[in-house]
Design a protein around this nucleic acid. Structure first.
Lengths: 355, 355
DNA sequence: TTGTATGCGTTATCAG
DNA sequence: CTGATAACGCATACAA
């Protein structure tokens, strides 16, 4: 039905060979100015565009990079993708986005599809369900360029871009403690994720540094990233129904934080009067939600940019790269307006140095 | 660097011809069971995957559809894309997303790139800057499948999916009036957009039906969709600095609503005490922002689904389609908790029937 | 300066 | 049942 013009059409129309047309269009020096002019004008007139599919086949590269994330309806990832795009666009790469919706199976399918030669490299942030990464290992061993960001794996040696999750979590927890809360629950994503582990460590360290005993029953994992059923709502409910109800929650992700807000609202608890909330979030609305929320913000856009630069470096390098860096950026904490409630005269601790 | 296995490799290794291997892999009935088994096992072992690029070239279709939107960091569009994906995935199509960031030039580039045979069809929501659509007309006239959603154009006859913007805007405005506000400003996107025009009409109609004189100085357009400089902040500021300051704002889009919230906060105005706000928004947080906000919510996911179904219908139809429907869905209004302020005992009007 | 032939990976057609 | 060949659109090594 839809037929576009090809080099062959131009060649036929002008009584030339396809190679001449091809060379003329690429401005090759070996073509006479007249022929060149003729061809270029004709191409212009008929709005000729080279077929990228044919080019890909020939050049064995598609000039596109694949992005594998859990969700784009997530402020962190949509901002990261904007960063990815900003670099890719300038370097002449297309960006193909795929969502796993936190499903391991879906992630495998997406990776296979993308990698089977329709992209030149992959930017990956693991799904919450993913606990083994053979699908990436196979590719990586064959030399396929992969860069991990945010939700990374230590099992594959390549470029990685993350934030200092430990410190972000530490600061968040410390902020709650500084505000007078001591019974601090932690709602996090899957146990398998690097970010969950690091944030958990930061949380634990802050408690320890303030001589607060860790209460294991205050920790809730959402192994499906809150994507199934009422995974997160259930977690929050079970927390507030504890006999020794926590007076604050530290949530470890954008979606989790938003879901916590929603769940608490649904339960009828007021923030921060009934319970305080501090969470990782990149929502532009966090500043609006004050005093409901204090947010730890990730430099999502920059992470996307850095990861993309590294990936393109990998793609375009002639010889195998052997030196891999792990870029660590810093989080920002947006503190809510201090509300009267719960604020004590505790002296703020000096911040600990973090690994 | 990264080399994947091809049919040719298998053929060589097994001492067969490429055609035999190809047929064996596709389970052709004319291949002996033994050969079939041999080939399939070998392919499995070496993790063979057909090269989609080569397939595209051969079949003159890529089994992928392109999406052209302004932003994915926008609740409406990210939800719509989820709807698009949900259908496309089931029908075996890839989704390639491109963002115009409300720039006309960027939109043209994206469309050209996508359409030059790397996608089989296009799902389009126009950018705020776009005031002529030759780039789509050309394609459409050549028979290239396009479906418009949300921000559509009447100049091209094809499938379209929208919401009843008139009614959504009418309801929003009526809600403000019912709550006792009369000096209602309207912050909207570009004048060129269909949605802006329709929402403006709904706003005007509600005012008229309540015998409120339209104050032209209460209307603010953001012709770049709020993407440049402080376009939106300036609009809000100029509104609140009017000598006859409006007591309410109706904002006509997801980003606009969020920006209004942010801008009002920055200025130091409390919602709804100083000024009320009702806006189109699909943010999962709107219910949290109560009583700051009443939101008109669009069925984004469904819109994405419907648009995708129509596009695939267009792509896969053998003969040119001549009957085009325009699907109109309904908005939902999420009303904020009624706050004491400003609520009068005005009797609610009966809703008008809408075109 | 231009044309011819080849190959990228796959499948369809035609011959065996 | 299997193999050789052509074609999809393009670029390039090689001829002329």
């Amino acid at each position: 039905m839809y037929e576009a013009i090809t080099i062959k059409d131009i060649a036929k129309a002008l009584g030339l060979s396809t190679s001449t047309v091809s060379r003329a269009l690429r401005g090759s020096y070996e073509i006479s100015p007249e022929t060149k002019k003729l061809v270029i004008e004709y191409a212009e007139q008929y709005n000729y565009r080279p077929n990228p599919i044919a080019l890909s086949l020939k050049e064995r590269r598609s000039r596109s990079i694949g992005v594998v994330v859990c969700e784009i309806a997530n402020n962190f990832f949509s901002q990261a993708i904007n960063g990815i795009e900003s670099i890719a666009y300038n370097r002449g790469y297309h960006v193909i986005i795929s969502q796993s919706h936190e499903s391991y199976d879906r992630e495998v399918v997406n990776v296979e599809h993308l990698a089977s030669r329709s992209v030149d490299g992959l930017l990956v942030s693991l799904s919450a369900e993913t606990d083994h990464i053979e699908h990436f290992k196979n590719l990586h061993e064959k030399g396929f360029p992969i860069v991990f960001f945010d939700r990374i794996t230590e099992e594959i040696e390549t470029f990685k871009v993350v934030v200092d999750n430990y410190k972000g979590a530490y600061d968040a927890t410390q902020h709650l403690i500084d505000s007078g809360y001591t019974k601090i629950a932690h709602v996090t994503s899957s146990q398998h994720l690097s970010i969950s582990k690091e944030r958990l460590e930061g949380y634990k360290a802050a408690l320890a540094d303030n001589s607060i005993t860790l209460n294991e029953s205050y920790i809730r994992y959402c192994n499906h990233g809150g994507m199934i059923y009422d995974e997160l709502e259930d977690a929050v409910k079970s927390l507030v129904h504890l006999k020794d109800r926590p007076d604050a929650i530290f949530s470890a992700g954008d979606r989790l934080t938003i879901s916590c807000l929603t769940a608490l609202k649904a339960i009828g608890l007021k923030i921060p009067d009934d319970i305080a909330l501090v969470g990782f979030s990149n929502s532009p609305l966090v500043e609006l939600l004050s005093p409901a929320l204090t947010a730890v913000k990730q430099p999502a856009f920059e992470m996307g940019q850095v990861a993309t630069e590294l990936l393109i470096k990998l793609i375009e390098s002639k010889r195998p790269v052997t030196e891999f860096e792990k870029v660590v950026l810093q989080t920002d904490i947006f503190k809510r307006e201090s509300s009267a409630s719960k604020i004590t005269d505790k002296k703020p601790k000096t911040k600990k140095a973090v690994s």
